[in-house]
Write a protein that binds this DNA or RNA. Structure first.
Lengths: 124, 124
DNA sequence: CAGCATCCTGCGTGATACTG
DNA sequence: CAGTATCACGCAGGATGCTG
């Protein structure tokens, strides 16, 4: 490996990761897509389940996230002809390779965040 | 699948995770602390290496992150008496259990983000 | 159905200055 | 040394309304 390179220039992987998944829905979108391609509306619906049934996610935001994920190379957009509009999103190879990471995150989260229990959670 | 618990109420683990590590430095602080306790100044210095030698992290921000991590139960603050002020931060059990997750993130990041290479990285 | 255009707001982040 | 206080700003993210 001879990583040797004492040049830690560039954003470190962690920072890059943070940037890549910045946004509330990106991780969940990726997770949702792990089961196969999904349409825009399906993703949107899927995002509503699991969280507090708070406000619906706005198209503007979802669109943004989707686009960002596409540009990050995690997902791929497939536009079927037209009328009526049908667009599917699916994980790219890169995206699929990322799934285990999300899985690790979820697993840890379920174990340590699912039951805040006796911890100081005065935040809310 | 016996998913059993049909109660996805509450923020899903992913969202909770996102919230917990929101902030540019939290993940890196945790990572930095994996090697043992560190003092405030050391953490600060450590944060400067690895990223572009951009601006120095402001005390306000670092303080905030540290406090948030403490309240999340990931790290622990140990204040040695006083004069001259000496404070050490160290990972809690919970924090240590989180390290592997960060490791997974870093590993993935190094593999897929370290060398954007031929991908569309027009962003910057 | 799958978006885009415009407006508005909160908060995360940085700069600067001060303290025990 | 290890913070806190105050000011300021950019941008993520929600609300609405429109379109191909």
């Amino acid at each position: 490996m001879a990583k040797a390179r004492a040049a830690p220039l560039r954003t470190c992987p962690v920072a890059a990761f943070q940037k890549m998944i910045s946004g509330k829905y990106k991780l969940r979108i990726v997770w949702d897509l792990k089961d196969g391609p999904r349409r825009y509306g399906e993703i949107r619906s899927g995002l509503l389940r699991g969280t507090a049934g708070s406000s619906e996610i706005t198209p503007r935001v979802l669109s943004r996230e989707l686009k960002a994920l596409t540009e990050s190379g995690l997902i791929d957009r497939k536009d079927f002809g037209e009328v009526p509009p049908k667009v599917e999103y699916r994980l790219t190879r890169k995206g699929k390779s990322f799934v285990p990471v999300v899985a690790a995150i979820r697993e840890w989260g379920e174990r340590h965040l699912g039951e805040p229990a006796a911890l100081a959670d005065a935040a809310e």
